[in-house]
């Protein structure tokens, strides 16, 4: 019995908790990509850098708060600074929409043109971020480090295996749940949210119904900017902030959005967790779990690992490619919110 519990705790510690955390981060990122796709109908390659920008503003604000001696008790101060990051990112998104994207909307440009434009914005943002905060790693999580320490868990349960939950992991999952609930409430219960869905479903008919496209587009950028700032900050809190990692996040995020069915918010969330758990389950070494679950003292010889951990990120690329090739519409096929 304790063996089974030990095996479960082992899996929880190395797969469940990190998977929920990473999945939440991907889901929030994918939600942003999917929003843009559903309303503006292009794949935004600049989304990773937008996340990076939001995280950077949050970090700068966090430093400023810490200098003033303001902290958030056991929770990371970054949560107090996050609203500033959100506002700055939203303003930045609206600005880019006004000076860059709006022109192409009026031209009725094709999706590839938009894509190339978003690459231009990717360059600008990545330069801007590195110019302002520099290319170095930044750890900005403060407050209590753990919600649950492995040792405490062992003492509490008397098991051999410990379960550690970092504060940043808890914060990530809770924030993600709150944000996702808010988004769904907005889209399904409010007039403005419904008008966004209507626009995404049928642009011409939305126009005929008197829905103002300019307003829908602006709200989309507001939501996307906010989501990006939150996702970027949570990722940075959890894994440490490095400007260059955010470009690498774009593909796993696209993978999440596409797996679920790009344009579909529910799909984006499901996709985030599919990608996160696939990465972990495929690269987890099952050796000790099997040792617990098999009777006697037998221990498997190898690590019993499907893929080496070096290939962790590659898993998301493989998922991405397979889904694109086999079912490009994704699990919850749909192009609309």
């Amino acid at each position: 019995m304790t063996d089974i519990l030990n095996a479960l705790v082992l899996l929880a510690n190395f797969v469940l908790v990190p998977g929920l955390t990473y999945g939440s981060q991907l889901a929030l990122g994918a939600l942003g990509v999917t929003m843009i796709y559903a309303v503006l109908r292009f794949s935004n390659f600049g989304h990773g850098e937008t996340m990076s920008f939001g995280a950077m503003i949050t970090i700068l604000t966090t430093w400023w708060l810490q200098e003033k001696g303001i902290t958030f008790g056991v929770l990371p101060t970054a949560l107090l600074a996050l609203p500033v990051g959100i506002i700055a990112t939203v303003v930045m998104c609206l600005l880019f929409d006004r000076v860059v994207y709006r022109y192409y909307r009026r031209e009725k440009a094709n999706p590839v043109t938009y894509l190339i434009v978003s690459v231009g914005i990717l360059f600008i943002l990545s330069g801007l971020v590195r110019f302002i905060i520099g290319p170095q790693d930044r750890v900005f999580a403060d407050g209590e480090r753990f919600i649950m320490k492995a040792r405490a868990f062992k003492q509490m349960t008397g098991l051999d295996q410990g379960l550690a939950i970092k504060t940043t992991q808890g914060v990530t999952v809770v924030t993600a749940i709150v944000i996702v609930a808010l988004i769904f409430w907005f889209l399904n219960r409010t007039r403005t949210g419904k008008s966004m869905r209507a626009y995404s479903d049928n642009e011409d008919l939305a126009l005929l119904s008197g829905i103002n496209p300019a307003k829908v587009v602006a709200i989309t950028w507001v939501i996307t900017g906010a989501l990006a700032a939150i996702a970027g900050t949570l990722y940075g809190l959890d894994k440490g902030y490095k400007p260059f990692t955010y470009l690498g996040l774009v593909l796993p995020i696209f993978a999440s959005a596409i797996v679920g069915g790009v344009g579909n918010p529910l799909g984006a969330i499901a996709g985030g967790f599919v990608v996160a758990f696939s990465e972990l389950l495929l690269t987890f070494a099952y050796k000790r779990v099997i040792a617990y679950l098999t009777p006697g003292d037998w221990i498997p010889e190898g690590l019993v690992q499907l893929l080496s951990t070096d290939y962790k990120l590659a898993v998301s690329f493989v998922i991405l490619v397979i889904v694109l090739l086999v079912k490009p519409t994704g699990i919850f096929s749909g192009k609309t919110l």
Binding site: V112, F254, I258, F317, V318, L320, V321, L324, P328
Partner: peptide
């Protein structure tokens, strides 16, 4: 694949190549 999906797919595949 559609043009933007082709871009994403080729980017993904080339990432796999580089990973390899």
């Amino acid at each position: 694949l559609r043009s933007d999906y082709l871009a994403i797919a080729t980017l993904g595949i080339s990432e796999i190549i580089v990973y390899f």
